[in-house]
Write a protein that binds this DNA or RNA. Structure first.
Lengths: 208, 208
DNA sequence: CGAATAACATACAGTCTGCATGTATATTGA
DNA sequence: TCAATATACATGCAGACTGTATGTTATTCG
């Protein structure tokens, strides 16, 4: 008969420790900033020592990257849950936009993903993470809209990046207390402005 | 008759020391990142000691803020020099956009102003700096365009912030090696899409 | 059941930041 | 003009943090 706490497989130990480290780091990185959070504090919250941290992660940045990756995935899942492929291209785009703005209201997410992430990991690394998760649905939505002729044909990568940047800034502004309606209205105007035919009447659907 | 090196007024000494500290910090902050640049290195490059730094600036962040402020002003001046008020609203907007993208190619500027700045000082502080310098001309250009009926009437603050965010991301992407033409084309499409009347066909060809 | 290896814990070296204290130079006012 | 005072620095110190090297315990495997 094995004791309850002993006899844990190595893989289980690794997985559990990594998960606890990431969870503790996530909590602290969202409450405070990356720079203000020290590894002693993280390992104390996780119930391990710094030795464990540096055994599982190359350095503090690597742990931060793991947290960012997880959080970006969580945001992407919220978006995909809100914009099923059954919707029309433009409607899916709008639903996804709103879902993104809602998802980014989770405390500390904007700083983690939009401020500390790019500064600590660099824009290139953040682009890679975004392309694996969040931006994918956005880019696919844009491609679909272009194919359905409801959007001008433009360089997809650039369009994705610039719209994503606008969404990011909107999330930051809303968190800072700006009017959600104002930013939402401008975002929609930017998207609708990309229609190949003049926007004309926004309410009655014109492209069909 | 005063000696050459002695007999310097206190105000001159302060001004000179501050300027040297800011210049040395600017050089290092643009070559490396804020986090990778230590105050011992900065004061060594400036030819003073850390005592002088902490006499003139509250902390490392305050020195960084001074560098950011100076650099943001330099960018704004380049833009205003390139987009005189004699131009038509839309043309001034385009000229300013191109000037911004050019100005941001100065080595290290994107990281300083677009990555480290927001992360270290916060988005609110960066917004304040931007509104004092760069964004002012953009917002005024947008207001002028709206007044001349060549742009839909939208919340000005939000529109300014979101377009600025798109410009920022374009500058980052271009520095990372992306196609300037692609990003420029999308930026112009976003701007032109905001026309209240159908795309207006300002030129027989689209934008190029 | 050893031997090798993985998963930690502990200890240490180097560096950094911010402050406190000391000193020289400039300014002020009687 | 000359002390008194304030300003502009320089120096030294305390605390904290990061990364690594080394030691110890728990698995895995032949």
């Amino acid at each position: 008969m094995q004791e309850e706490s002993t006899r844990r497989s190595n893989r289980d130990r690794t997985e559990a420790t990594r998960a606890e480290l990431i969870a503790a780091a996530r909590k602290l990185f969202t409450e405070k900033s990356y720079a203000e959070t020290g590894t002693p504090e993280i390992v104390a919250a996780a119930g391990v020592t710094r030795g464990a941290l540096y055994h599982h992660f190359a350095d503090k940045q690597a742990l931060f990257a793991a947290v960012v990756e997880q959080e970006a995935q969580a945001v992407a899942e919220e978006i995909e849950r809100a914009s099923p492929p059954s919707l029309l291209a433009r409607d899916a785009l709008i639903a996804g936009s709103d879902a993104y703005l809602v998802a980014m209201r989770a405390p500390g997410r904007t700083r983690l993903l939009l401020l500390d992430g790019p500064a600590v990991l660099g824009r290139a690394a953040m682009d890679a993470i975004d392309n694996r998760h969040g931006n994918r649905s956005l880019r696919e939505g844009l491609v679909a809209a272009m194919r359905s002729q409801s959007m001008a044909r433009l360089p997809v990568e650039a369009l994705t990046a610039l719209l994503a940047a606008a969404f990011d800034r909107a999330a930051l502004a809303i968190e800072a207390g700006a009017s959600t309606e104002d930013y939402r209205a401008v975002l929609m105007a930017l998207i609708d402005g990309l229609s190949p035919t003049p926007p004309q009447a926004p309410r009655p659907a014109r492209t069909r």
